[in-house]
Each structure stands twice: as C-alpha cells, then as structure tokens.
Amino acid sequence: MNRNYIFLTLLMLVLAAGTWLLKKPSEFKQIKPNDLLWEMIQPTRYVTTDQVAKMIIQKDPSLELIDVRSANEYNEFTLPNAIHIALDSILNSANTMYFGIKGMNVVFISNDDIKSDQAWVISKRLGYKSMYVMKGGLNRWYETILDPQQPPETAPKTDFEMYAFRKGAQLYFTGAQVETTSTQKKDKLTIQRKRKASVASGGC
C-alpha cells in the first residue's frame, strides 16, 4: 500500500517538474531577426494610397485600417472606418486582438511612414501576418487623393488613367462623404475583433 503511494508521489513530482522542461517557446513569440530584416526590405509590405482608396471605395471587407497617430489627430481627420490605436498602446491585449485575423489585411496609417513603420515592426515581431503600411501616410493621401495634380502633357497614358481615378476618388472622399458620414460611423461598430472568452457574470 505504502509502496504504491511512494510511487504515485514520485510520479506527481516528476510530472510537475516536467512542466519546467516545456518552457513554452511561444511565451514570447517572435520571428527570427533575419526573417524580419528580409521582410522589412520587401516593397510588398507597402500599399499605395491609390490601393487603399480603391479598397475603401469598393468597400473591401478584408481591409482593416489602423490609425497609429495620437487621439487628437485621429479625431481631427482620419480615413473612413479607421480604428485608432496609439503607437504606445499597441501591445495592449485589447489592441492586439485586431491583428492576425484570418482574411483581414491590416494597414497602418500615420502622417508619414515613420510611426506606421514602427507599428509594423512591432506587430511583425510578434509574428502577425498580413500587416501593411500605407506608403507616404496621410500626407501622401492628401497629395494624391484629396488634391491630385494633373500630370504634364508629356506624361505616359497610365499617369492620366491614374489621375482620372484619383479625381474620382477625390469626389468620393470629399464630395460624397458629407452625406455618408452617419452610415460610416455605424459601420465602425461592425469592425471585426478576435473572439475573446466571454467573461460570464456570477461565479460558482
């Protein structure tokens, strides 16, 4: 009888001690530095303002805009349906819920590339996929979408096509926006988040 208990005691101790051996590698999940550097120099991590504009106009459901500027700047102006996550609180679990959702493409925006690049590196180091930066930020957005310049006469045909698109987009974002702001605000509520365990009320 006692011998069995000694055996069980040892078994339990071994099992408990065994948990140390399986220190989770994912406890601080990071991608390898080399992979990060390689991904950093890929031009594919950028999306242009034109692509973003097109996705917004087409109401692409996979687009998830994240504004990493300060709250004041966000309240003053942002892109339709953009979510605000200040750069310094990007690691909060309430915020990382927005990342890495299957089928969603996260696009960081800020005034230029600097803050959004930082946000991209942080989120990338955590191993999230499908993260992008809007090239040139909102400054480029203003130059290209809100106030497009007509290309010179000698420019190639593609430039004129792009100009035509931008002119259309300009109408969409400046002219049409006035009437649709209310519906767009409503859209914000449907933004996808990762499911969190429901914290039910009432204990035992």
């Binding site: 339990m12 101790l13 099992l15 408990a16 001690a17 948990t19 140390w20 220190k23």
Partner: peptide
C-alpha cells in the same frame, strides 16, 4: 505558473 504548480504539488 510552473513554480506555482510545483509549489502546490510539493
């Protein structure tokens, strides 16, 4: 958590 589990076990 490993420390706590081991402590409780002991």
């Amino acid at each position: 958590s490993q420390w706590f589990a081991f402590g409780f076990v002991v």
